[in-house]
Design a protein around this nucleic acid. Structure first.
Lengths: 214, 214
DNA sequence: GTCTATATTATGATAGAC
DNA sequence: GTCTATCATAATATAGAC
């Protein structure tokens, strides 16, 4: 169970760049494989094949399958945080209710864009683990508490449904994302595809209308 | 890939009963293992150990791992349908809005009771498969369409949030169930446990308040 | 860094005694 | 029906050439 980082490469700039490209290709491939098949279902061979390299190279770059998994999660969090914080600074001057609305709408559009994040979270957040604790302390708690403050403000203004702010955030999360995670079922049962661009605007409208009141 | 039913046992009544007990023990164990670890993550050895028997007996009773999986799903559907239909007859004399309310409340309580069903559906309903098609045609479509009718009636009476009835059902499903599927994260982030009995009544209240209007 | 070849382990399935 | 023993396969990880 050696999941240490790879030995520090000291080569030319071109070689370093090529290695970095390989690493990134493996990471991208692994993200898809993990999201599609879960941790156990994803094979390092399949990851390697998708990335166009051979299997031992995965171990070389990430130490182990476990190390690869961690790297995927960290990259996803980094993406999410970047997108989220970019939007945060953009709305600091709005009043709380409008800010909450923008943040939640942005979350819906983020979720529609890539379900990988939520697919992987569905695997991680089910039962306690070191990974989960790390994610909560490193990132999630902060996000949830910031939004809880905004929800309290919106509730005080009579503009948001009543209830515990954390509880409400999970209802919102579920309402927004579950339909994407059940995409195949939705197509067969309801006859429309959640990934259809036309669907997104309506999804935003309805999800927000559930929680915002006036 | 032989997943045929086991050879018909022709023995004494006592022997038949013992075999049936074994079969049921394996089925119960498999339900837990599949829910906890997914299809790939669940090992037939672990199932056998949990059921207190040895591994080849699983193959004997269910033909293959795939056969075991199907048996688990069918048993879950049967439970759900029994509980759902029991309630349906009980409310046929109510007016549509009240009936919808009872049905949706019952769904929340069912979901809280056992998350196994939703954990497994999360695996099945992500991408197209024979399993999914079978479930949709055999059962899901009917449930969703019945409820869609009730939602239309409630909307016409101005008692339910506007939107496509199928779309709304998936929002409802997500709001109700996702918090249970992320139980470990919820405990760490929000500090309460969704499985806490006190939580359930509040969960019912808030979920219904999101969708029902007056 | 990237490759081929291989060791090691875990798992689903089978054979055959009782 | 249930067991023990074993096979066949697939997957992670390692060794070593280039």
């Amino acid at each position: 169970m050696t999941d240490t980082a790879p030995a520090p490469p000291k080569r030319t700039r071109a070689r370093q760049q090529r290695a970095e490209d390989t690493r990134q290709a493996i990471l991208d491939a692994a993200t898809i494989e993990f999201a599609d098949n879960g941790y156990d279902g994803a094979a390092t061979r399949a990851v390697a094949a998708r990335a166009g390299v051979n299997q031992p190279l995965v171990t070389y770059h990430f130490g182990s399958k476990e190390g690869l998994w961690r790297a995927v999660i960290q990259a996803l969090i980094a993406d999410y945080r970047a997108q989220y914080e970019a939007h945060l600074t953009e709305v600091t001057d709005l009043e709380p209710v409008a800010r909450l609305r923008v943040i939640q709408e942005e979350f819906i559009r983020f979720s529609a864009n890539g379900t990988v994040f939520h697919q992987i979270m569905a695997h991680v957040a089910r039962k306690p683990s070191e990974q989960l604790t790390w994610m909560v302390e490193e990132y999630l708690r902060d996000v949830y508490e910031t939004r809880a403050e905004l929800i309290r403000a919106a509730q005080a203004a009579g503009k948001y449904v009543a209830g515990d702010p954390f509880h409400l955030q999970y209802l919102f999360l579920g309402a927004v994302t579950r339909i994407y995670l059940l995409a195949a079922e939705v197509e067969q049962v309801a006859g429309f595809s959640p990934s259809d661009p036309d669907f997104l605007d309506e999804h935003v409208r309805v999800c927000l209308s559930l929680f915002f009141r006036d």
